[in-house]
Design a protein around this nucleic acid. Sequence first.
RNA 1: GCUGAGCUGGCAGAGUGGCAUUGCACCUGACUGUAGAUCAGGCGACCCGAGCGGUCAUUGGAGGUUCGAUUCCUUCGCUCAGCA
Length: 404
Amino acid sequence: MRDVGCAGKIATEMTVRFQFEKTAIDNATRARAGRVTTAHGPFDTPAFMPVGTQGTVKALTQQMLEEAGASIILGNTYHLYLRPGLSTINQLGGLHRFMSWEHPILTDSGGFQVFSLNSLRKLSQEGVEFQSHLDGSTHFLSPERSMEIQAALGSDIVMAFDECTSFPATRDEALTSLTLTEHWARRSKLRLGELHTDLAAAENAGITIVNQTQALFGINQGSTFLDLREQSLEGLVEIGFDGYAIGGLSVGEEKDAMFEVVSRIAPLMPEDRPRYLMGVGTPEDIVEAVALGVDMFDCVMPTRNARNGQLFTRRGKLNIKNARYRDDAQPIDDACRCAVCMRYSRAYLRHLYMSGEILGSVLSSLHNISFYLDMMGMMRQAITLDTFIEFRDSFLSGLARGQD
RNA sequence: GCUGAGCUGGCAGAGUGGCAUUGCACCUGACUGUAGAUCAGGCGACCCGAGCGGUCAUUGGAGGUUCGAUUCCUUCGCUCAGCA
């Protein structure tokens, strides 16, 4: 039985420190393998974090995630703050206890919603006034407020509150945006520190600290302007964070521009801290970014696309709704060992979609998440064996080969 | 047999003299820190120089009126309801 007891857990939480140790470096690329330790256990890098915005990785149970090999998931400050509200989750012992996930959790700060809910918000130095997408009510999110919410959630990795610069942006807009993000990063660090060291501060904010060892990551911005990206990173490093993220990519820019930023910035990020490329991406994107030295990823793609019928395989993606799969007895991916591929045919999966059956989303999400996590495992192994280049070339050529 | 109401794409169902509307089904495509189990496009046939291109067909069948008919008229068929 899995240990879900909490009596011993609290004692552990008090003593464990957040840390990152590199375990292997690939000599031919900048790829690196490592292990991050949190109050809720370790996770190995390069890591993919399934996105569980509202306290659930859509269509999957926590047990399915564990069995698929997920070691850390992502939750969202903005959504959980609006519903069910931070006091509910805080009173119930934090997000881990609330959703029964005793492994690491990273929470996004709400910064991305500042970007994606563009039409519903008003931005100022102080923070963001926005209208709830649920009922239209007005709310205010600031670095301080974001830290309070994330402290109430008790995630293991807290993201600084940032502004995800929209694309395209002029140089001036990008500069203004990254300056605001840097300002907010400083305030985020200050506020989270207060909440953790000053008992009265947490009490005044109406929250109980449920996780004493929350790490804080800063977020790099600067759009596609490389010098601004560097400037942003220098500012963040000066403030000092437990890890560093590259944000504001995959927001509409050309793929080349994205990799230009990652290949310039990743090597400049502190070597002894986890590097996190936010919101990326396709399997190809992730493999390329690992080669550039990135350690952590999250993306809605495997789960969202699964619900829409797109499945990832070692031979590229396929749309299970296509008529060609009507009588196809093969598994989704014959090289995949996931619970779905070991048991069900493409024809059955297609049937579930065509019938609008909810199990179609469940099985497809499970397969896609398994595919992503298996890919991360293969990369970790290749890095350890110093064969990452070989892995990358064969994996990418497999993806490009297609179904036929 | 009489009377009445109907017959429109695979299905459902608008339109009632001037480009046949919509939904479902079906066929594709998109999706990158989740306002998404969503969204977009296509869905009579054929043709090429592939263009917001051309030709032809099309509202149960056959006729008719009209510049023009899914729409009006005649007739036949079929469906449903009521009455014998």
